[in-house]
Design a protein around this nucleic acid. Sequence first.
DNA 1: GGGGGCTATGGGGGG
DNA 2: CATAGCCCCC
Length: 747
Amino acid sequence: MTYLSSLNEVQHQAVTHTDGPVMVIAGPGSGKTRVLTYRIAYLIEQGVAPQQILALTFTNKAAREMKERIQAVVGSKGERVWAGTFHSIFARILRVEAPKIDFPPAFTIYDRDDSKSLVGDIIKEMRLDPKQYNPNAVLARISSAKSNLITPELYAKDHELIHYDRMNKRPQIYDIYERYYKRCKQAGAMDFDDLLLQMYRLLQENKDNVREKYQRIFRYVLVDEFQDTNYLQYAIIKLLTVYHNSPFNICIVGDDAQSIYSFRGATIENILKFEQDFPEVSVFKLEQNYRSTDHIVKAANMVISNNNKQIQKEIWTELGDGHKIKVIKAVSDVEEGRLVASTIIEYKNRLHLENRDIAILYRTNAQSRVFEEHLRKQNLAYKIFGGLSFYQRKEVKDILGYLRLTVNERDDEAFKRIINTPKRGIGKTTTGKIAEIAVEEGVSMWAVLTSGLYPAKGKLASFVQMIEKFKAKAASSDAYEVAMMVAQESGIFEQLRQDQSIEGIGRMENASALLDGIKEFVENDIADEGATTDRSLAAYLSDIALLTDLDTTDEEESDYISLMTTHTAKGLEWKAVFVVGLEENLFPSYMSMGSPDQLDEERRLFYVSITRAKMFLALSYATSRYQFGQFRYNDPSRFLEEIDEIHFESTVERKKQLFKEPRLLADRPGRKKDFEPRVNPADFKPSPSEQLAEGMQVLHLQFGSGRILSIDGARDNKVATIHFDQGDDSERRIMLRFAKLQIVEQG
DNA sequence: GGGGGCTATGGGGGG
DNA sequence: CATAGCCCCC
């Protein structure tokens, strides 16, 4: 057990304290992954069977790394540990247990596009105004309901939710939710949230004692990034670990300061509740940072201290002062790209860094383009993470659509995608009719065609025949052979072959790469020692539905600069990190400007970003940038001001320039001293900006009440001049696009 | 009835 | 800047 000697005292305790509930609060770079993996290795060495250990992570990458490191200590049996994302582990279990909750074993996983399209269809069927009922907004409500364990029945009875929807002029959401839920069920499909919700149902309803079965299997449960779990995930964890005579062998690892997923339902409350739910919990705080030098660590501490709620801790390092933080000011997004690229060249020459030591982190994917262009110009190898994953490309999704319909004929979203792809003369009128009958009869579109509810003649008959042929093939052959047949006989390969443009050839390559991937999946069967591994087509589809771009490894080139969003960067580290686009309305995002809680989350995101750097940290901003199709001027991010200038490399002169431009200080709402909201956020109900007019008395979350003096600017860019009752700068110009105002009195 | 080109609209982070 | 809806032509 020599590996234990490499741990510091707290880490050692966290690893060897195996029984009963354990909570590890782990600051950035504090050896969290080491603790988790060594703890699992230690359990195995203590005689716990690997297959009795469940380790839940948020990304496939984290799970993969964990498995590799466990195997490095305990050998190949480490492979049998149940390590994976919540979604992938639950999908695997549901694949086996689906009939117990009335789903087919070959259930489909609906991705975001599928969900959105279904919600859109339902909104149309209900003849609701799609402008008012924006599918994305509706879906967000449904997702948040599911994450909080609110089923359609509960939603309809929940006065608070109903009231909220009424206020937002979307009173029918409960109805849409109910229909959406039924239609997913009808299609034998689960969306991402259902993988959690249906897992909960499975355990809760406990048919054939399935709950006890999994309680018995998972003797030790570990949860990584616990601060990012939502109510539902925690509820499932409790079903698995809290029962009569339970040893409560649950270990959670997390950091409240790195909670950045509240937008998808994560709640910091879970950490606080954990101590109430498990009063006998042993708590270990990992505060020593082994990643970054002191200027970076101190800056990070300083930034996070501006947040309201947090578990007290102070991160420290023994790695020395290190380099100061570089601040890069650019006049435009294009110049920002150029300056970052040239700084990278300078770093590489002066500091002997490789490409792989460097990352550029941005708040939104849309920012990647300028950096891409300038890196290419400078001949620097780079890789963009995020954006469209391989499996989201059209040509790939088309083939997958056929495979989905083949394994699950009720999958209406797949049906709609491929019925006329490639074009076979079955247009939207026909498809519309089939869909209409399907809704009326409460059956799938496939059933409408095959049961005679709609006459399947001619083109439709050949389509049915083709799919039947695929289904027959699937019954007798492996996934690869089916996919090959689909690609050829559906006409997809033929169509791609005809397009000899550069993009067209690329699409053909993608389609072939998909088939290669399926072949690999099938052949892995032999390599895997576990006989239980599911190599079916359904299992393949389920696997890839949960993969992200981060999971597709390419071996050919490994020395590249990494470009990704700040969210994706969580858990990763580089010698040199560039956090870019540090401007108000971008980072922090304009979407978060309305509420202190959301601003705190942006700050945590910034905290996560800067703590990715081991030795060199550079922060850049542009005073103007092309955004939403026009030039916009934004102030430097408030987060820059939260770092003491002793940690900055730039001269004081430059810094003065940076912060003393008069307008920066004048109309900056979020500065600490005047940030106490003058309105109770709970009582604040923003009014739609199109209703705002001159003379109205309005309420602003930070500035309190005021009167609109005038509104000017073009449609999407309206700016209101408002006289606020309190405060020194009583007249402010507020962009209606960003600001949330509540009408108190029509003028 | 189906296909293709045009205009309008919306745009955050991810399993 | 991408996608959806719309209109016009086949």
